[in-house]
Write a protein that binds this DNA or RNA. Sequence first.
DNA 1: TTATCATTGTTATAGTATAACATGTCAAGA
DNA 2: TCTTGACATGTTATACTATAACAATGATAA
Lengths: 172, 172
Amino acid sequence: MAHLHTDPCPGCADPDLAFAAHDHAHCTSDALARADALIAAKGLRLTPVRRRTLEILLEDHRALGAYDVLTRLAAEGYGNQPPVAYRALDFLEEQGLAHRIRRLNAFTACMHPGEAHAPAFLICRGCDTVAEAPAAPVLAALEAAAANSGFTIERSNIEALGLCPACQDAAV
Amino acid sequence: MAHLHTDPCPGCADPDLAFAAHDHAHCTSDALARADALIAAKGLRLTPVRRRTLEILLEDHRALGAYDVLTRLAAEGYGNQPPVAYRALDFLEEQGLAHRIRRLNAFTACMHPGEAHAPAFLICRGCDTVAEAPAAPVLAALEAAAANSGFTIERSNIEALGLCPACQDAAV
DNA sequence: TTATCATTGTTATAGTATAACATGTCAAGA
DNA sequence: TCTTGACATGTTATACTATAACAATGATAA
């Protein structure tokens, strides 16, 4: 969870803040700045479509379908065919700037780019918010279970559906 | 992992045996017998399509797409439209007799029907075998992480992609 | 028997994803 | 400067996954 910068970072230091009111502009600018740095460091290019796609995903802590993203991109003058969105999304995912939420067939911006992490996602079925929870202990338990069978894990996805605090209160 | 029957059950007592040679006929007959008992106990009906669908899923420890199942069902005289397969698969999943593997958009027979469990899946990308690993510790870690954010988990899916022992050896 | 409900069949359509090829862009080396 | 080659984008077409909605059938219980 360590950050590269030293500023206070309310939106991303605490993963659970996705569920609470917070300085979201900071989330966005921070994530973008780190994305720029990360991609530059790798000698890759965060082209206009790719960067814009990331910005769209960063607009809030929800997951967007590829076709939602595509609609937005098309409205802004980019190509309007599925591969346009899928290519940008796949690139972002490969570079660790976005995650695919398989349960939703959708994508969400990574809130901790640059930090090695195999995240666990908390998906609120009330408000559709998606939060990245610290998954190190979960991953460790999963690897232990796999090791018991001699299985080697390369990638994993851990997703939980439920209710965030606000939606639990609202349900009462 | 406790069984309802007292026979030795090599195929299901050890989840990792999905990756190894084992008495698969026993897996199948055991799972079917338990499915019958379970459904009867609930006062529901394991109709021909549903039972046949389960049998098809039980043929081996892999995941089948809904359309794969549909093709099989249609060839045997059942309806040949998608809802036929999806309804049977959804029923089996709701009753805990099958699981949906989201990473694969596919379904696999449950190897521990009747035992309350939120399973973790180990998916071998070499041989496409899917094994159910004991997930209690993983689940516990996930719930702990969620609790930290005040998030209540209702359903979760935990899937890992990698290589089973045999495919690791083969890769050398 | 008849009302009722669950199940299955069927039509149609919605939503998700990728293959394949054409075009364009940019930077490094001749 | 020109060329070349790699990467990126645009575009066409199609494959794959999933569900809504309604009709027909079959079991069950009052």
